[in-house]
Nucleic acid binder design. Structure first.
Length: 293
DNA sequence: AAAGTTGCCTGCAAGC
DNA sequence: TGCTTGCAGGCAACTT
């Protein structure tokens, strides 16, 4: 469940249940996800107190203080299909935000792929399921920089500045679409939101990054900020794995202007173009050749 | 059938 | 010539 808005949605779902709690028990149902769990993963986390649930790009960060008083960060990347499911302890209905976790937990196919189970000190159970097992978890000391974050670019939020973004973006001669997927250029964007941001900015995905002038970059920045902010506000997007047969949850109703709309008319007013699908760096790109230049 | 991710691998081309 | 760098493409994981 991948791009930044989806991870942020998960973070907001988990934080109220996890913050301040102690991990009473942790069970690993297999030795690895995409990578092996780090050594002593279970032992270090059992008995630890969760201080905070944060996020960097597409990484979920669970800040813990272990029984010995050492502070560490439990990192979780959801890959393509990773998801957390919450079953609160005690009684009373679950908060609305958790509805989709329930929906997922009831699926037999998902239950088969629960790889991590934990119980908190208030009786809450949290499961991590990941059918394709492309996610991974790690545990590192809070005071050392995590390797993946050292060279990572800025978050696509309100703090993104032209001064920071422009030089990172225009360094190389690869297509802008590919440049924006590079997490060292900007963090947290994936295939869907790159397509959507380029559409909003009216920039062709084929344009070479080093051929973008300041005018286009200045247009691209708010396009990125807006598309991400709107997707977070909508609680993430409609992703394949989250389409339910009943469609009852109005939770993932964010609509895309170009993504997955090949052959459909461009939604830009006064544009007569048809959305095209091309492949760049092995990934699908959707765009309107008429209004994206 | 193609799908949101990303690290690792190979191979190719360019530049110094 | 040989070294480095950049980039494309393939693969891996598996279910829907």
């Amino acid at each position: 469940m991948p791009e930044l808005p989806e991870v942020e949605t998960v973070r907001r779902g988990l934080a109220p249940h996890m913050t301040g709690r102690i991990i009473r028990d942790l069970t690993l149902n297999r030795p690895d996800l995409r990578f092996p769990f780090p050594q002593h993963f279970k032992d270090r986390l059992t008995g630890a107190r969760i201080q905070q649930v944060s996020r960097r790009a597409k990484y979920l960060l669970i800040h813990v203080e272990d029984a010995g008083g050492d502070e560490a960060i439990w990192l979780s990347h959801l890959g393509m299909t990773g998801r957390f499911e919450i079953r609160p302890g005690g009684d009373g209905p679950a908060p609305a935000l958790d509805a989709h976790f329930y929906a997922q937990a009831q699926s037999e196919a998902v239950a088969k792929h629960v790889h991590v189970q934990m119980e908190l000190d208030d009786g809450t159970h949290i499961h991590y399921a990941d059918p394709r097992r492309f996610g991974y978890m790690d545990l590192f000391p809070a005071d050392t920089p995590y390797p993946a974050f050292v060279r990572m670019g800025p978050e696509p939020d309100a703090h993104l500045t032209f001064e920071d973004f422009y030089p990172r973006l225009t360094q190389r001669g690869l297509p802008i679409k590919s440049a924006l997927l590079n997490q060292e250029v900007i963090a947290g964007l994936g295939n869907i939101y790159v397509c959507e941001a380029l559409f909003r900015a009216g920039i062709s995905p084929r344009r070479k990054a080093n051929r973008l002038g300041p005018v286009r970059v200045a247009r691209l920045i708010p396009a990125i900020q807006d598309v991400i902010a709107e997707a977070i506000a909508a609680g993430g997007s409609t992703l394949r794995d989250f389409r339910h047969s009943d469609g009852a949850l109005g939770y993932f109703q964010h609509r895309f202007a170009v993504y997955d709309r090949a052959g459909a008319p461009c939604l830009q007013s006064d544009c007569t173009g048809i959305v095209q699908r091309i492949v760049q760096s092995g990934r699908s790109t959707f765009f309107c050749p008429h209004c994206q230049r």
